[in-house]
Computed example of a mutant assay.
Amino acid sequence: MPLPGEVFETGLTLTPRVDRYAMITVKMCRYSVPARFIGHKIRVVLRSAELIAYDGRMEIARHPRLTGRGEERIVLDHFLEVLLRKPGAFAGSETLDQARVDGSFTTTHEALWAAAKSALGDIEGTKVLVQVLLLHRHLQHADVIAGVRAALAVGAFTRDVVALEARKVAETGGRSPTVSADTPIPEPPPPAPDPQVTCLTMRRVAQLPLDNRPLPVLEAWDQLLRGPRKDPQGRAPVPDR
């Protein structure tokens, strides 16, 4: 038989609460979600090879499934707003270490960070780096990297210069530089119409022969409504009002 058209979800659905570190615990492992969901309950679909977190119907995080007890998966992008307010926590964070390992924080980012800190100091230079990292939410990753390199080549490192150079690279390549931050979620298919249900009583009635008898005359019965009602305990009749 052909496979059904509807997608059948095989993952396990859970509703963990996001802790104060913007982490959720699922099956003895911890995963990061955007910091704005701290304290909220979210919906998680745990599949054999990945974990997907939703706020309502909007996907907010996707991780490869961890298998070792106590393992953590942290995404740098989930903490950028927090690091913008507390830039001093960026240098020694586990978030930065994992971003270096998975390759999302490249040597180009390192060069930008070093140039910004050299010109503005550690705190302000880190803020500039975080602002540039936020560009990855709206611009293509490769375009941002090319924009950083172009900005450093002319001795600049600000967010606006990097964004301008990234858009130039995209326009030169004949493509749009912007990306959609949220993956569109298809609307659910309309519900199938209910099958026609035949009532057994109506089916039996339809099989009966036609009844040609005249309708009964009920005028004589109306006299009972006009007569006095007898009290059930034997007292005097109660007149109708």
Rank of each mutant, 00 (worst) to 15 (best):
F90E: 13
F90C: 08
F90G: 08
F90Y: 15
F90L: 11
G92F: 02
G92S: 11
G92V: 01
E94H: 11
L96G: 11
L96H: 10
D97C: 09
D97P: 11
A99G: 06
R100S: 08
R100C: 12
V101Q: 12
V101S: 12
G103E: 08
G103R: 09
G103H: 11
F105V: 01
F105P: 05
T106H: 06
T106Y: 10
T107W: 06
T108F: 06
T108W: 04
T108L: 09
H109C: 09
W113Q: 10
W113A: 13
W113P: 00
A115I: 03
A115E: 05
A116S: 15
K117F: 02
G121N: 13
D122A: 14
I123K: 14
K127Q: 12
K127L: 01
K127P: 00
V128R: 15
V128E: 15
L129M: 15
L129V: 05
V132M: 11
V132W: 08
L133I: 00
L134Q: 15
L134K: 14
H136P: 00
Q140K: 13
Q140Y: 10
Q140E: 12
Q140P: 07
H141P: 09
H141S: 14
A142K: 07
A142M: 07
D143K: 08
D143R: 10
V144M: 04
A146V: 05
G147Q: 03
V148S: 01
R149V: 07
A150T: 03
A150P: 02
L152K: 02
